[in-house]
C-alpha cells in the first residue's frame, strides 16, 4: 500500500487520537507546572450604618476578585514549578512520618494511601482472576456440550454489566442488614458491619473485581482450550502422565500466551480502578489513584476545581502506567523485529 493511501485510511483516526489523546496529555503536563488563580485586589471600602447620633462610618480593607468589563473574574496563570506535585505528594509529612518511624502515618496522606490501595488491589486480583478463569474454563470444557451455551451466557453477565452498577448490586447485598450480612452474622454468630471499616470494603472490592473480570479470563482460556493438541495429550497419557501433570506440562504451556495476554489487560485495567470507589462509596476509607484525580476535578463547595493538583496527580499516575508497560513494549518490539527479518 502506498503511503498516500495508507495516510488517507488512517488519517481520521489518527487525527482524533492526536487531538483528544495526545494534545490533552501535553496540556496536562503543562497544567501541572502552572497554577490558574483569580487576581485579587485590595480595596478600601467605607461602610456606614445609621445610628441615633448620625452615621457611624468605618473604612476597612477588603480583598475581592478583579472583574473585567463583562463581569467575569479575571484570572492569571503563573509558573509554579513543582509546587502542585508537592501539594499532592506532601514530602514534608512523608519525611516526618519516616523520621519518626511511624510508617502507618504515611497512609494518612491521600496520594500514598491511594497508591497503596491501587497496587495491592492490582497484585491481589491478578492471580485470583487467572486461577478462577482457568478453573471455570476447565470445568466448562469438561461439561456436557448442551449446557455450555447457558453457562457462557450466565458467565457473561458479570462481565457485561456497567461497573458502577455491578459494584452497587454487590453493595446492596451487604448494606445494613442485607441478605448476605444477615447470612454472615448467622454463620459467624457475631455482629457485622461491612461498611464501617476499610478492610471489609476492600474485601468486597476485591470480590467484585474478580467477579467482574473472571468471565473475560474464562472466555479467553476456554477458546484456547479448544485448540489444545489432542495428539500431545494422548501421548502424554501413554507416557503415564497423571491428570495434574497433563495440565501442568501440556495444557498450561499451550495457554501461556493467553495467560500473558489476560494478565496484561488486567494489569492495565486494575491499575485504573475507579468505579469500585464510586459504587461502594468508600472514599472515606479507601481511595485509588484515578479516584484522586477525579476528586480534584470535581468542583468543591465553592465551585472550584483543583486543575493543577489534578494534573500533577494524573502525571504521577501516568508514571505508573509507563513502568507497567515498558517490559511489554520491549517484548513487542523484539517480536516485531523478529518477524520482519
Amino acid at each position: 500500500m502506498k503511503f498516500r493511501t495508507f495516510a488517507a485510511f488512517v488519517g481520521p483516526s489518527l487525527a482524533l487520537m492526536l487531538v483528544f489523546i495526545a494534545a490533552p496529555l501535553v496540556g496536562v503536563l503543562w497544567q501541572s507546572f502552572h497554577l490558574t488563580q483569580p487576581i485579587f485586589e485590595t480595596v478600601e471600602v467605607e461602610s456606614c450604618t445609621p445610628s441615633f447620633t448620625g452615621q457611624i462610618c468605618t473604612t476597612e480593607l477588603k480583598t475581592r476578585p478583579v472583574l473585567d468589563e463583562a463581569g467575569r473574574i479575571v484570572t492569571e496563570t503563573t509558573y509554579v514549578g513543582l509546587q502542585s506535585y508537592r501539594n499532592v505528594l506532601e514530602p514534608d509529612r512523608l519525611r516526618q512520618a519516616i523520621a519518626s518511624g511511624r510508617w502507618l502515618d504515611i497512609l494518612d496522606i491521600d496520594f500514598w494511601a491511594a497508591l497503596r490501595f491501587t497496587l495491592t488491589f492490582t497484585l491481589i486480583t491478578l492471580p485470583l482472576i487467572l486461577l478462577f478463569g482457568l478453573g471455570i474454563a476447565l470445568a466448562v470444557n469438561n461439561a456436557v456440550r448442551s449446557i455450555r451455551g447457558p453457562i457462557i451466557f450466565v458467565s457473561l453477565l458479570p462481565f457485561i454489566i456497567t461497573p458502577v452498577i455491578g459494584a452497587l448490586s454487590i453493595r446492596w447485598l451487604f448494606i445494613g442488614d442485607g441478605i448476605m450480612t444477615a447470612f454472615l452474622e448467622w454463620w459467624l454468630g457475631r455482629d457485622i458491619a461491612m461498611f464501617a471499616q476499610g478492610w471489609t470494603i476492600e474485601l468486597l472490592m476485591l470480590f467484585y473485581r474478580v467477579w467482574h473480570v473472571a468471565p473475560f479470563a474464562f472466555v479467553v482460556f476456554y477458546a484456547g482450550l479448544q485448540t489444545v493438541n489432542m495428539d500431545t495429550l494422548e501421548s502424554a497419557i501413554i507416557d503415564g502422565a497423571s491428570r495434574w501433570e497433563r495440565l501442568r506440562y501440556v495444557v498450561i504451556p499451550h495457554l501461556m500466551p493467553l495467560i500473558v495476554f489476560v494478565a496484561l489487560i488486567h494489569l492495565m485495567d486494575a491499575y485504573r480502578v475507579f468505579e469500585e470507589i464510586v459504587g461502594f462509596s468508600s472514599q472515606a476509607h479507601v481511595i485509588s489513584l484515578q479516584w484522586l484525580t477525579y476528586d480534584f476535578l470535581t468542583p468543591d463547595d465553592a465551585g472550584n476545581r483543583a486543575v493543577s493538583r489534578a494534573s500533577a496527580s494524573a502525571m504521577l499516575t501516568m508514571i505508573g502506567i509507563v513502568v507497567l508497560l515498558v517490559p511489554l513494549l520491549r517484548r513487542t518490539w523484539r517480536d516485531h523485529r523478529g518477524t520482519r527479518r
Binding site: Q31, R272, Q290, T293, Y294, A310, A314
Partner: peptide, 9 residues
C-alpha cells in the same frame, strides 16, 4: 491511559 488523566486535560 487512565481516563481521568485525559479528562484533566
Amino acid at each position: 491511559l487512565p481516563h481521568s488523566v485525559l479528562v484533566a486535560g
